[in-house]
Computed example of a mutant assay.
Amino acid sequence: MTNSQPNMGKADGVAFSSSANGADPAAAAFASIYWEGFNAEPEFGRIAQSLYERLQRHGRLVFPAILSDEEVVSLRAFTVEGLECNNALTEPAVAEQLCEAGFHGITYELTSEVPVSIQDGIEFRLFTVSAYKGKAGVCLDQGHAVIYKGPWKHTVDDDGHTYQRGIRTAVCEKTFNLLMSAPYQGQFIPVRCYVEPALDKSGFFDCNTPSVRDPKVTKGLVPIAGSAEESCCADGTSCC
């Protein structure tokens, strides 16, 4: 997908400009944004935050990115497949800045196996990067757990929660729903509590102390642990 203006992309079929700082946020809530201006912007962190604010709660950001395998001191601008590259971040730096902006589920897809450019020994490759919004919010405990299927021994999400293969990991209602959705869908086995309380009757879940969920909780034989007084989410903010 190309566009004559490097700063422009598509948001639900509507032209989107990363520099439209004066836009009404209520009028700019999109389910998805496809952004083409990544390599034309020197301040990606600020732009990522702006894009995050313009997405709906479970929205997705997708953009093509030319990334370097080493830090770039001086970049000689070039164009690849209609994408102008005036600025390049390293491969890990993109995910780091997206996480800082609040995104989760960040995924890289390699578009070109060979470098699209080599400058002073630094290789540049073309990726498609996607990131999701929706992990913010209060964490409520309904007795849910998930079992990570593998094949890795364990995996860690963007909030630092570790999921051991084959182990019932206790999660809050919000995280449970996220893990059942893209891009995590199919990687976890859901384990719902047989007698889960209504949301308005649920205690807060302490995301700072991940633990194994006792099967007796799932079967309703012992109470769901956690209370509004003890949880890190007791102030009504997200601890994730």
Rank of each mutant, 00 (worst) to 15 (best):
K174D: 08
R213E: 03
P183W: 03
A136W: 15
F38K: 04
C207W: 06
E84P: 00
R168D: 05
S231P: 03
S117D: 15
P197L: 07
G45W: 05
T2I: 04
F176H: 01
V222T: 13
F127I: 01
A101W: 08
T128E: 11
S181T: 05
T128L: 07
A31P: 03
C232Q: 01
Q185I: 15
A198W: 06
V73L: 13
L61G: 09
D12Y: 03
W152M: 12
D69I: 10
C172L: 04
R192G: 03
G102R: 04
E109S: 14
K219A: 15
L89H: 02
K10H: 05
L51C: 05
R76Y: 09
T218F: 12
D157I: 05
L51E: 04
S4V: 10
Y163N: 10
N87Y: 14
D200H: 08
E100L: 13
T107C: 08
L98P: 12
F188V: 15
F63A: 05
R60A: 10
A88K: 00
E173D: 15
V171C: 02
E53R: 15
V14R: 14
P151V: 00
G9F: 03
G143N: 03
N39G: 02
A77E: 12
E71R: 14
I47S: 01
I189T: 13
F63Q: 09
F205W: 12
K201Q: 11
A93N: 11
S19D: 10
T169D: 00
E100F: 09
V171P: 03
S117P: 04
G236R: 04
P197T: 09
A95D: 05
I66F: 08
E100P: 09
A145K: 08
L61R: 02
V171K: 05
C139G: 09
A23W: 15
A88N: 00
A77L: 12
V62F: 08
T107W: 06
V129L: 10
I147G: 07
S68K: 02
S211V: 14
A234C: 12
N87S: 11
D12V: 00
E91T: 14
A198S: 15
C239M: 02
A182E: 12
Y132D: 06
Q56E: 15
T107K: 02
E123N: 15
V171S: 03
L199T: 15
K153I: 10
F78G: 00
V62D: 04
I147N: 00
F103E: 09
S227M: 00
G160T: 07
G82H: 04
D24K: 02
F176I: 00
L55Y: 08
A225K: 10
V138Q: 14
L221W: 09
A40Q: 10
L51N: 07
C193P: 06
T90Q: 05
K174S: 07
L51F: 02
E41M: 05
G134N: 09
Y163H: 11
